[in-house]
Simulated assay, not measured.
Amino acid sequence: MRKKTYAMRYVAGQPAERIFPPGAMLHVGQALPPGAPLPTDNKLRVLVWNIFKQQRAEWLSVLQNFGKDAHLVLLQEAQTTPELVQFATTNYLAADQVPAFVLPQHPSGVMTLAAAHPIYCCPLREREPLLRLAKSALVTAYPLPTGEMLMVVNIHAVNFSFGVDVYSKQLGPIGEQILHHKGPVIMAGDFNAWSRQRMNALYRFAREMTLREVRFTDDHRRKAFGRPLDFVFYRGMNVAEASVLVTRASDHNPLLVEFHPGKPELL
Rank of each mutant, 00 (worst) to 15 (best):
C122Y: 10
S161P: 03
A94M: 05
Q86W: 11
A137S: 15
L144A: 08
D190L: 08
L93E: 14
F87R: 01
V73T: 07
I155A: 13
I119E: 11
A88T: 00
L113W: 00
W59G: 02
M151E: 12
V62T: 09
A114F: 02
Q97D: 05
V62D: 04
Y167T: 06
Q76I: 00
D190T: 09
T89P: 01
L103P: 01
M111V: 06
V98A: 01
V98Y: 01
D165V: 14
C122P: 01
D96G: 03
K135W: 06
Y167N: 05
F101K: 09
G175W: 07
E148T: 10
H181Q: 12
L60K: 12
L47K: 02
P143C: 09
V158L: 15
P104C: 10
A78V: 03
Q76L: 02
L72A: 03
L133Y: 14
V164W: 08
V164L: 12
H181A: 10
L144D: 06
P143M: 12
A94N: 03
L130T: 15
W59M: 04
F66P: 01
P143Y: 09
A188Q: 02
N65H: 14
M187S: 11
G189K: 03
E176A: 15
L171S: 02
P118F: 07
I186Y: 03
G163H: 09
A100V: 00
V102W: 15
F52V: 00
E128F: 09
Q105G: 01
T112S: 04
V98E: 01
F87D: 01
C122H: 15
E176S: 15
H106S: 13
S136C: 05
T146G: 08
T146V: 09
V73G: 00
V139Q: 06
I186H: 02
F191R: 04
L60M: 14
A78Q: 05
Q97E: 05
Q64K: 14
P143N: 10
E126S: 15
Y92C: 01
V166W: 08
P118Y: 06
I178H: 07
T146I: 10
Q79W: 08
N154A: 02
A157R: 07
L74Y: 00
Q105W: 09
V73S: 01
Q79P: 01
L103V: 10
A95S: 07
E58D: 15
F52R: 15
L75S: 00
C122W: 05
Y120E: 04
T140G: 02
E148I: 07
L93V: 12
Q177E: 15
F160A: 11
K169N: 15
L74C: 11
V48F: 04
W49Q: 04
V73N: 01
A116K: 07
D69V: 07
